[in-house]
Design a binder for these strands. Sequence first.
RNA 1: GGCGGCGUAGCUCAGUUGGUAAGAGCGCUCGACUCAUAAUCGAGAGGUCGGCAGUUCAAGUCUGCCCGCCGCUACCA
Length: 543
Amino acid sequence: MSRTILVAVAWPYASGSRHLGHLAGAYLPSDIFARYHRMIGSRVLMVSGSDVHGTPITVRADQEGVSPQEIVDRYHAEFVSNWDDLNMQWDLFTTTGTENHHAVTQDVFMRLYEKGHIDKRSSEQFYDPEAQRFLPDRYVEGTCPHCGYKDARGDQCDNCGRTLDPIDLIEPRSKLSGATPELRTTEHFYLRLTDFEEQLGEWLRGRKGWRKHVLNFSLGWIEEGLQDRAITRDIDWGVDIPVDGLGPGKKIYVWFDAVIGYLSAAKEWAASQGTPEAWRDWWENPEAEHYYFIGKDNVPFHAIIWPAMLMGYGGLELPTDVPANQYVTFKGGKASSSRGIGLTIPEALAAYEPDALRYAMAANLPEQSDTEISEEEIARRINEELVATWGNLVNRVLSMTAKNFDGAVPDPGPLAAEDESLLATIDETLVTSAQQLERVELRAALRTAMEGAQAVNAYLNALEPWKTAKTDIERTATTLSVAIDAIEGLTVAFSPYMPVTSAAARQMLGAPEIDGWTRRGVEPATPLGQIAPLFAKVETATD
RNA sequence: GGCGGCGUAGCUCAGUUGGUAAGAGCGCUCGACUCAUAAUCGAGAGGUCGGCAGUUCAAGUCUGCCCGCCGCUACCA
């Protein structure tokens, strides 16, 4: 029976270009996983979209003298273009700016409110009289009361690392205008996370196969005790609060609405298909599996807050797994486009072919620990592994076949033990890589596929078809035919990672489109396609 | 400060519930081959598994302390 899979992908924040850390953290793994599931016949719904609300976007808009919508439109267009270049296969990539999303967010808010999981409280916040705006903690700067550092942020001092309360800053000033902020009382709605503490703990302790950094981190939050959390902000850019009582100038907090995007996007997708109820197959179906692809900084939102919201709402499915990735680091530091650390996705796409970039990043996915990446590392992965082992394998086999057998797949004749053995190895490659993909061990599954390619190279070196071509054409036919069948099988394993070149390789082999996670081989006498190298080597900085 | 993760070969990383002489890829050395994008294949060198002390018949794997790196710390998203 075919499985029902929701591939939920972190919503990129439309405040600037995304970088390779984001690509490796969430987008590439989700696409690989979704493609695998489509190949084995699962019903996949892969959704995400641009996250368009929040203070940083309004600040940037002010700085540039444009509307927040202009900022959002610019980066949303860039993301869509990136995904297109990378051949990301979304079922829907929308934004949180749609009417549908606002309506679904308000529905979730109202339901939680009516069930008593949201209440109203007041607190004191810094307000910038010049910018006429309440300031998030990190937009208040001043002198650290602990170490005297002059440019401490309101949430944390970058010098001594201590967590701060902006009220404790000496000589506080607004990061926006430099003005001295004043304290004002403000009312907000709070999500009562404490209502779900026990239920969340029980649920989390029952999770199997979750990465330990995800599970331990989440359980740590539970053990420390959850805190109720404000879910509205003093801002005019966001989703309207669907109940009266707070007065103007307040919106729903961007993070509360962003996670709801997984649900609203499913509804938008269903409506766009002309089957408006179809979202229920994923969200109200206990058999459905939900996988959330995010970076580790988002673990609390996906393993604590969003599940709590779902529990409170009732009748919707909780995450099956949250395979959060760690960080990609450049020269030891976390990638950051705002600080210019590491390549942005547009920069990387300008430098590398999409499939080659996908290979290099997939081979370095930070699944267990932070992974150090450099342009040298990307070039090494492409030149020393991808081109040398896989690209060259396809090229050497096809070249020999074209030359010796009139550009068509030869008839293998009876197979010898070593022929059967190679094909068994490739079949095993597909079995093993599928198991690893199921566990979201994407790096390992790619490695497995490469080992399959090495096995074919070793087989060729052992049977030396370039020699037998002069002495035993039947043996040569067997060798090359078996190698072609093996390569056909490997294109299946590589396809989730490198869809374009895998399809190109199949065309060269004369193989039909992939049908299932299995080796099918190529019929004898099938004419080969136009042969060309699958990948080009990249120049390295030192060349 | 608190919490979490990490610290394993020159580099990038794997090492399930503790158990045969510690692994992979790349790099390096030697050899084979020369069909192929000087690509491939084989062999080899290379590690006190951050440090110290424990538990155990047995620890990279468990416990404690220490050192270092990264992240989070609930109002960045």
